[in-house]
Design a protein around this nucleic acid. Structure first.
Length: 604
RNA sequence: GGCCCCGUAGCUCAGCGGAUAGAGCAGCAGCCUUCUAAGCUGUUGGUCCCAGGUUCGAUUCCUGGCGGGGUCACCA
């Protein structure tokens, strides 16, 4: 029995080679078999070298079901001819009962064609595993912190926050699905000057609630959403605050306003299906002896804080620029371009100083894996954030920053802009009301995060093939429709999961059947790739492809009655086909669930 | 000027260091006495921005250009 190697080079705990049990991922499985074969044939090859070999479906299906570059990867370091190695591997795999044919192609590709029984076993695995099919356990329970949204608590969520919110939420789900212990976190910027402004704005609304006619001066927040805050303040304090000096009413107003703003944000996010586990307040880091103090002290001891001057930024006409000595963090020591200020000219800490303390706090809470989801306007912040994480963790923690490129809102083909200052921004809740959660989420995830995108209201609301979310949901609804039809036409059939898991899958021999099984077999592989790359859009694209494969099969039944799912003339085949449809349905549900998109049983 | 992202079919975009680069839309030609046509089938369409480099192999990685977008002490 050959030793077995997982992609991560674990030699000690081999899964059984030709198992009787469910197959989670046929590609990972064959990667392990190829690695084992290499190890047997070439004991001198290092695990690291072997780990570079991959098994994947070839782009051109004419090349077979699975393809490996193992021979080419290994050839040069071993000083051997790649085709020779490939030939040796091919010879080795002739005895593998799952392999129908194996051939050497091109410069040394190893192309496998698998027998039908393997695909039937994959299908059976899906029906046995159900929602667990695709849970690949990459994470092995490791803790990951995903921070996203973290919008200023000065008002409701607006459309500009939506992409990051959806992305962060889907990425977190994907990582949970892949076996990580995920904490979804929101950092509340409740310590800066804008919070003072917010409190002053709320105070005006408070006076308004007490009967005064007020006008919101420029520079304050004009939005109506502060009216309820004013009323709440009036309820709680009556006229009491009016007689107090600002220094005394401000903290009270600030506290209540912030509390209500965070609630407002939670409510808005909930409408998008987004929920965080932790809301972390920046304010808790400030204060005498707080986390910022201790963190900076800690950095100072390491020689990472000093007094110095910065160059005036080039290219920018900066009238306000003042050359002064500053307290700086040695970000350049960790790959940043310049050292970064920690203290403002008024003596208070910069946002960045608090953020260093915040990320040290994350590290001390046990997070060695951190992901931050930020908007494109923060791209200049990435290198200093990574520098901070390296510094506070002594290089132990890794930070991945996902930048969301801009979303341009379009209506009737015309872009429109908004300004937060005038209060005419489009609220997230309005967006959700207009186009719906599913369409919003899917469309925003149907693009790489580095790619800027247009979000056209008309298009997103359209219920046609132009709109991928309906295409995928329709495929799911169709799978349900097949079961409904089967139940009404063939009431004698037992279609319970238990019965379906015993279905005579060996009857599924048509090319169409096998093609569809191959499509669902890609699911765990897709999850693995998406989770490793932190790219949820891969899930969305996969679901679209699976939906296409299913719709295509469906249409074949129109011309060839033998390819119908429900076939009263052949009950055994019908049961087998329903097991296949059930597997498609299951994978669609699993994928849509990861993306936070619903899988309706029928479209109305 | 520095840094970040993008540049792939007419348009919007996928593409994991692999073989003859894909999908949707648009265009053209077809498929409804139906397991929901909200769907399917066929077809036209490419200098993967340019030039070097690394590699057995580059659309993919690196360097330098060109074009588009974002951003640039102390705001958050």
């Amino acid at each position: 029995m050959p030793a077995c190697l997982t992609g991560r080079g674990n030699w000690s705990n081999p899964p059984k080679p030709f198992y009787p049990g469910p197959i989670m991922d046929i590609f990972a499985d064959f990667a392990a078999r190829v690695a084992a074969a290499l190890k047997t044939l070439y004991p001198e090859a290092s695990a690291e070298l072997i780990g570079r070999a991959v098994v994947e479906p070839p782009r051109d299906p004419a090349h077979g079901d699975l393809s490996s570059n193992a021979a080419m990867v290994v050839a040069k370091p071993l000083g051997k001819n790649p085709r020779e190695i490939a030939a040796a591997l091919a010879e080795h795999f002739k005895s593998d009962p799952d392999v129908e044919t194996v051939e050497v192609a091109g410069p040394g590709f190893l192309n496998f064609r698998l027998g039908e029984p393997v695909w039937h076993r994959v299908l059976k695995s899906i029906d046995l595993l159900g929602e667990a099919y695709g849970k690949v356990d990459l994470g092995k329970g490791e803790k990951v912190n995903v921070e996203y949204v973290s919008a200023n608590p000065t008002g409701p969520m607006h459309v500009g926050h939506t992409r990051g919110a959806v992305f962060g939420d889907a990425l977190a789900s994907l990582l949970v699905y892949s076996g990580y212990d995920v904490t979804r976190e929101y950092y509340i910027n409740d310590a800066g000057g804008q919070v003072e402004v917010l409190a002053q704005s709320a105070f005006l609304r408070y006076r308004e609630a007490l009967g005064e006619t007020i006008e919101i001066p420029p520079g304050l927040y004009p939005g109506d959403y502060l009216k309820p805050v004013g009323e709440q303040l009036a309820d709680a304090y009556g006229r009491e605050l009016l007689d107090l000096p600002e220094a005394e009413w401000l903290p009270k107003v600030k506290d209540m306003t912030l509390k209500m703003m965070v609630e407002l944000i939670k409510t808005d996010l909930a409408e998008l299906g987004v929920a965080h586990d932790v809301f972390f307040s920046e304010r808790t880091l400030h204060g005498q002896g707080g986390d910022i103090d201790t963190t900076l002290e800690w950095l100072r001891e390491k020689g990472l804080v000093y007094q110095g001057r910065l160059d005036r930024p080039k290219g920018q006409t900066d009238d306000d620029w003042e050359d002064r000595e500053q307290t700086l963090f040695r970000a350049t020591q960790y790959g940043d371009d310049v050292d970064r200020p920690l203290v403002k000219s008024d003596g208070s800490y910069t946002y960045f100083a608090a953020d260093i303390a915040y990320h040290r706090n994350k590290y001390l809470r046990g997070f060695s894996h951190m992901i931050n989801v930020l908007g494109a306007d923060h791209s200049g912040y990435v290198s200093r954030l990574k520098a901070a994480v390296k510094a506070v963790s002594g290089g132990e923690a890794e930070m991945d920053v996902k930048i969301m490129q801009l979303v341009r809102l379009m209506r009737d083909g015309q872009p429109f802009t908004m300004s937060k200052r005038s209060g005419d921004f489009i609220r997230l809740s309005d967006l959700v009301k207009e186009v719906g959660v599913d369409a919003t989420r899917f469309m925003l995830l149907y693009r790489r995060n580095e790619q800027s995108m247009d979000f056209d209201f008309a298009l997103v609301k359209e219920q046609t093939r132009d709109n991928p979310v309906f295409y995928v949901q329709y495929a799911h609804a169709r799978t349900c429709s097949v079961f409904r039809t089967a139940e009404s036409e063939l009431p004698a059939l037992d279609l319970s999961p238990a019965e379906l898991s015993k279905a005579p899958l060996e009857l599924l021999v048509s090319p169409a059947d096998i093609e569809l099984i191959k499509a669902v077999a890609q699911w765990p592989r897709t999850v693995t790739a998406a989770a490793l790359a932190h790219e949820p859009h891969r899930i969305a694209f996969y679901l679209y492809e699976l939906a296409a494969a299913f719709h295509s099969f469906w249409a074949k039944g129109r011309e060839d009655r033998g390819l119908r799912f429900v076939n009263p003339e052949d009950l055994k085949l019908t049961v087998a086909r329903l097991a296949l449809v059930g597997a498609v349905r299951q994978v669609l549900v699993n994928g849509l669930t990861v993306l936070g998109v619903s899988a309706p049983d029928e479209l109305s």
